[in-house]
């Protein structure tokens, strides 16, 4: 038990979190206007259509911006200090928040290529970002 927050799914997001437990990251694609969106919603935020379909992403993206956290927001994160909090642009054109893990915090930079990985939190896998492995 880490004590770190575990996402609690709701009817908008249950499909997303179930897919994470299969180590798949899904976004919504609007069949009406073609827009991709994340996080999951009941409607398309662009055209308000509810004709949405789930689409699995490639798992690649880049660091849009980041910060090295050195003061934990709660005791549960103290053991992780310092850690990287980042906004990630996925190649499918949506933005998410993740930690960049499995690398030195000093190596993270804007524009850095990343790939998705999954971290077990309680009984829920949550998506995380890591540098693209070489070779």
């Amino acid at each position: 038990m880490t004590g770190k927050p575990i996402p609690v799914a709701n009817p908008d997001t249950a499909v997303f979190w179930d897919a994470c437990n299969e180590k798949r990251f899904l976004i919504q694609s609007c069949k009406s206007c073609g827009e991709n969106q994340f996080y999951p919603r009941a409607i398309c935020k662009n055209c308000q259509s509810n004709d949405l379909e789930w689409q699995e992403v490639s798992g690649r993206g880049t660091v849009k911006t980041f910060t090295v956290v050195r003061h934990a927001p709660s005791p549960a994160f103290k053991a992780d200090l310092p850690y990287v909090l980042a906004l990630i642009n996925l190649d499918e054109g949506v933005s998410t928040m993740m930690n960049v893990i499995e690398c030195d915090v000093e190596d993270v930079h804007i524009g850095m290529d990343i790939e998705l990985t999954f971290e077990l939190r309680g009984e829920q896998y949550i998506p995380q970002a890591k540098p693209i492995s070489k070779g």
């Binding site: 927001p73 909090l85 930690n99 804007i110």
Partner: peptide
């Protein structure tokens, strides 16, 4: 912060503003 998509990553208000600052 968002309960499902931001909190799990250890975001605080200072770290969220720090994301803006870095950019």
């Amino acid at each position: 912060g968002h309960g499902q998509f931001e909190h799990p990553y250890g975001m605080s208000v200072p770290s969220a503003y720090a994301l803006v600052a870095t950019h």
